[in-house]
């Protein structure tokens, strides 16, 4: 019974489904980038950083295959590793811009130093950049999930307006769902690449699905900035 259910699941998470979700996620990212660029004049400093984050993620997604071909490599692991590193730094700059988290800045710097030290140690003693590394991905996921919870707590401490009309709430929700939902994938990323296709597909379907949610939340935050900016004017 258990195996029969599993076989149905394998059919459901076929390569076609994986590709479909991947393309939706990729094109939605491009769409959101254009949407956010269109609403750029209504955005503040931290929103621009998030826009930069979207731009870099689209760039990495788009250039992924080309990088592999140009450098004549068999895998794209070094791109995945680099992306995780850049993602941590860009989002770190983003959280530094958040007024509500101002008092935690010094603690955040400690985590940044820890992250950099971890990366250096892993690359020196554990794995090369051309191998799949999950430690810094997991570190990112735990760090940003925790920061999101702290930010939610700060929201509740100083409630002034409806949170659903606050752009930062949407941005935080998007990042929270994305990083928390990805924890299991980052934890099992080695199995994801070493096992069969159904496992690989499932992992990436979940990842892309979470990316779609994150992108929609970011788009929503940009729209909210535009809507209430217009109202204030």
């Amino acid at each position: 019974m258990y195996l029969v259910t599993f076989k149905y699941l394998v059919v459901l998470i076929s390569t076609e489904t994986f590709k479909l979700v991947y393309y939706i996620s990729f094109f939605l990212s491009i769409l959101s980038l254009l949407f956010c660029l269109f609403l750029l004049k209504y955005q503040g400093g931290k929103d621009i950083v998030l826009l930069l984050y979207l731009g870099i993620s689209v760039f990495f997604d788009f250039m992924n295959e080309y990088f592999v071909k140009w450098f004549e490599l068999s895998t794209n692991y070094h791109i995945l590793n680099s992306w995780s590193f850049v993602e941590f730094l860009v989002l770190f700059y983003f959280i530094l811009q958040i007024e509500e988290l101002k008092k935690y800045r010094n603690k955040f710097y400690i985590f940044l130093v820890l992250f950099l030290v971890t990366c250096v140690l892993v690359l020196t003693f554990y794995k090369s950049i051309y191998e799949l590394i999950n430690i810094h991905k997991l570190y990112s996921a735990f760090f940003y999930s925790s920061v999101s919870i702290v930010l939610f707590y700060q929201f509740l401490q100083s409630l002034k307006n409806n949170l659903l009309r606050t752009s930062l709430f949407w941005q935080n929700t998007g990042l929270f769902i994305y990083f928390t939902g990805n924890i299991m994938i980052f934890l099992m990323i080695d199995y994801l690449y070493s096992d069969n296709y159904s496992f690989f597909n499932t992992g990436w379907i979940i990842h892309n699905f979470l990316t779609i949610i994150k992108t929609i939340c970011i788009m929503m935050s940009f729209y909210i900035n535009k809507k209430y900016h217009s109202v204030n004017q």
């Binding site: 258990y2 195996l3 599993f6 699941l9 939902g181 924890i183 299991m184 994938i185 934890l187 099992m188 199995y191 096992d195 069969n196 159904s198 496992f199 499932t202 992992g203 979940i206």
Partner: peptide, 12 residues
């Protein structure tokens, strides 16, 4: 494989 897949799905 099914064990890991189930673990991934349930965990997520």
């Amino acid at each position: 494989t099914p064990n890991f897949l189930v673990l991934l799905l349930i965990g997520t």
